[in-house]
Simulated scan of single mutants.
Amino acid sequence: MLDTQPPRPPAPADLAAWLKLFGSAEMPVLRQTARRLDEARQNIDRVTGRDITDIVLQDPLLAIRVLAYIQSFGSKRLRSDITNIASAVMMLGVEPFFRKFENPQTIEATLGRKPQALLGVLQVILRTQRASRYAHDWAFARHDMNVEEVALAALLSDLAEILLWCFAPELAIDIRSRLQSDRALRSGGVQREVLGFPLAELQLALCREWHLPDLLTTLMDSSSAHLPRVQNVRLAVNLARHSIDGWTDEAIPDDFAAIQTLLNISRETLLERLQLPPELLPGLVKQDTRAAEGRFWRP
């Protein structure tokens, strides 16, 4: 039988080509997000900006679409003040928001014939949602002046990886397979082998290309790791990554020690904040914390 599958288009040759690909593509959203938006639109007379914000903050791709779109409005100074979704929605207005983001394409439809890729991207999004919750909680505990800004940065922390799963799933699968086959490999090194650059480089390039607020870019940039707000984001991302498959990863004790230092709290208090199942608590309390001394956070 002849192969009737269309030939796979070649991967973009360099970083600029990747930026062009992502810039011209329609960002899909989660099916659940599309459903919630439709329900809200049907009750538009009772929907508030806060309601819309709550929907957007559960979906990293819709969040980046909103932030990128808002850059076409108003003066540069006004746009630079939009560093969270609530402000963006307020600037757009409820009805214009629904007109702009009506009938979005969904991730599930886009990757419906590629179940392995669909599972991969949903796992990454689940991880970013968890990271965002952690970042929000810790920013609130630190009395941060703009808690949502920190949570949004954590939600968007793996944007480049999400886009890779959506638009070049074969490459994303290749990267994951290599990392799974050899646990000694570093993610950035494998990404460079497959793509020609690490995803962190693409992430920052996307931030610049889409003119995202400087503060959000800083919060996602590991070179600013000395800043407490950046530590907040990165520690949330790290803990979400290490705990997404359970609480046995050997890196978790170091994560806990760094979070305790950031928040100036005990292990018991941290575990209470994380709201973990009671049966896990005894083992986590007794975990070796020797690495806490002299090791705050490392990118």
Rank of each mutant, 00 (worst) to 15 (best):
L284T: 00
T33W: 07
D144G: 08
N146H: 12
L163W: 07
S24Y: 04
R142D: 04
R65H: 02
L30F: 01
F98W: 10
H226D: 15
M145N: 02
R267C: 09
A117H: 08
R186P: 01
K114M: 02
A200N: 08
S222W: 06
T128G: 01
L270R: 07
Q42A: 13
Q58Y: 08
R186T: 09
Q32E: 14
T48Y: 05
A25H: 03
I52E: 00
E149R: 15
C166R: 11
D51P: 02
H136W: 03
Y69H: 07
L2V: 07
T106H: 13
R298M: 11
D255P: 03
L30A: 13
L171V: 10
T4G: 00
D59R: 15
G112I: 05
P278K: 11
R241C: 06
R113V: 02
I85P: 00
L263V: 05
V147E: 10
V121H: 04
Q71P: 02
L119I: 07
R290I: 04
G283F: 03
A141D: 12
G189P: 01
L215N: 12
L119M: 06
R241S: 10
A40C: 04
G112E: 05
R192E: 14
P228K: 15
R31D: 01
A13D: 09
V29D: 06
I44K: 04
W138D: 05
I55Q: 12
E250K: 02
W247C: 08
A225H: 08
N103V: 04
Y134T: 06
W138K: 08
A168T: 13
T289S: 05
L199A: 09
R208C: 02
L206R: 03
N84I: 08
N238A: 13
L126S: 14
A11I: 15
M1T: 07
V237E: 02
G49I: 01
G23P: 01
R298A: 11
P6H: 13
P10S: 14
R31K: 02
L284D: 01
G189S: 08
